[in-house]
Amino acid sequence: MKKTSTIYQDGDHKWVAIVRDNERPGHLIDTNEYLVMHGGKAILLDPGGAEVFPAVFSALAGEFDPSALSGIFASHQDPDICSSLALWLEFNPGMKCYVSWLWTSFIPHFGGTADTFVSIPDEGMDIALDGLTLQAVPAHYLHSSGNFHLYDRQAKILFSGDVGAALLPHGQDGLFVENFDSHIRHAEAFHKRWMGSNEAKRRWCERVAAMDIDMLCPQHGAIYRGADVRRFIDWFDGLTVGVLHG
């Protein structure tokens, strides 16, 4: 059963993290889903795989009426990101899925019709949520070749997909990063192997360093907040990625 945790709230503008499924089988990588609510609407970021659909759906339903969910944002095409898409669409067939144009004919293998997908161009785009503007920020080749993060300027939160992800051992899997130096050890191998391009990484670091961010929320592991956001960007900037071993 997944837990929900409100990480930001200002009136009806809310970010809820859906995390840490203690009943998840060990062979399944743990994922974080995020729900952004504004007005009476909400968008679900990286809804997760088909296997975790019941856990994510029931946790979300405790926080928000799922029938008012207006869309899904998929940072990229991986199964742990959106293989549950067909099940979400069974419940709410009119829901939109925002994803890189690169994947709009690949992701339908998970489900959806031609009307389901909203293509995000390479340069990114604004996504409206009942009066709130969210920004799809390019993060191509980090790790997917068509990859986006989602920035909420008002909440100062960046959903960063696989960037910032950490594979945390049991017992050290708190919601927030508490000790950056010990945490980052669990992120290093992941970033070296999964992130394929040093050039793309440099461009992302430059872009993100110029943004006003209070929280950096990855799809796996713990959330970086406050000074740890900058620490992470600097650390990532200095890391050589696209490395098979070491």
Partner: peptide, 20 residues
């Protein structure tokens, strides 16, 4: 009731997976 309803939502979601 809240706990029970949570389990129901979860189980109906499992059955939805089964159907697909």
């Amino acid at each position: 009731l809240s706990g029970l309803i949570h389990r129901c939502v979860n189980e109906v979601s499992v059955v939805l997976q089964d159907v697909r």
